[in-house]
């Protein structure tokens, strides 16, 4: 119930913001204003206000930009995000992507997966080669999302949405999720969300 009420509050706040921002959409893009808009749901300190909302602080720049682009194009569906992204020009999306990329990824305090869960997840990961794109520590890069330390509930919902096609902006991911047994997703989400990588992450970019 708490989550429901928070989501409702988020939607209400956004509705107000969107009206406000919409009124000024023809004017020059105001990064500070848009950042405040994002913080309504994604958190003023980088911790999202509910578990279904993804962490965007520290997310990879290319991935961030492409999601906004896809919301604007209607390729990724979300009733809250589509009207927000519709206001943005390409340069605005890049500015937001660059801004949030530089923020420190928040620690959501999610536990490391137990050994059995981790082993089940690793088996699924090796089978479809997740690290081929998301890289060694699931830090992602460029146009590929960071998964390590992302909200477990969001990860689980996203994998299932790719699987059933309701998230339709990456058919390659949909194919890979379709080829993964449904039984593996809980383990995958627990394992990936519990990875704490910021102490040693460094990929030279």
């Amino acid at each position: 119930m708490l989550q429901v009420s928070r989501r409702a509050a988020c939607a209400a706040l956004l509705f107000g913001w969107t009206l406000f921002a919409g009124a000024s959409s023809a004017e020059e893009f105001n990064l500070e204003e848009k950042v405040k808009l994002c913080a309504t749901c994604h958190g003023a300190d980088g911790v999202p206000i509910n578990k279904q909302t993804p962490v965007i602080w520290g997310q990879n720049e290319g991935y961030f930009y492409l999601q906004l682009r896809d919301f604007k194009r209607g390729m990724r569906k979300n009733p809250l995000m589509e009207p927000i992204a519709a206001q943005f020009e390409k340069k605005d999306m890049y500015a937001l992507a660059a801004y949030f990329n530089k923020k420190k990824w928040p620690n959501l305090g999610q536990p490391s997966a137990p050994a059995k869960v981790a082993a089940k997840a690793e088996s699924a990961i090796k089978s479809i080669g997740c690290r081929g794109c998301h890289l060694d520590h699931f830090q992602g890069d460029g146009s590929t999302a960071r998964l390590a330390g992302q909200s477990q509930e969001y990860l689980l919902a996203t994998m299932l949405a790719f699987r059933d096609g309701s998230r339709g902006n990456n058919p390659g991911m949909s194919n890979l999720m379709s080829a993964t047994p449904e039984d593996d997703f809980e383990a995958l989400s627990q394992y990936l969300s519990g990875l704490q990588i910021d102490q040693y992450l460094g990929h030279g970019r």
Partner: peptide, 17 residues
């Protein structure tokens, strides 16, 4: 799946057994 405009487009999956 149809052409996704520059996104990963495998048309399926290869799975290590």
């Amino acid at each position: 799946s149809p052409y996704p405009g520059g996104k990963l487009w495998l048309g399926g999956a290869f799975k290590v057994i």
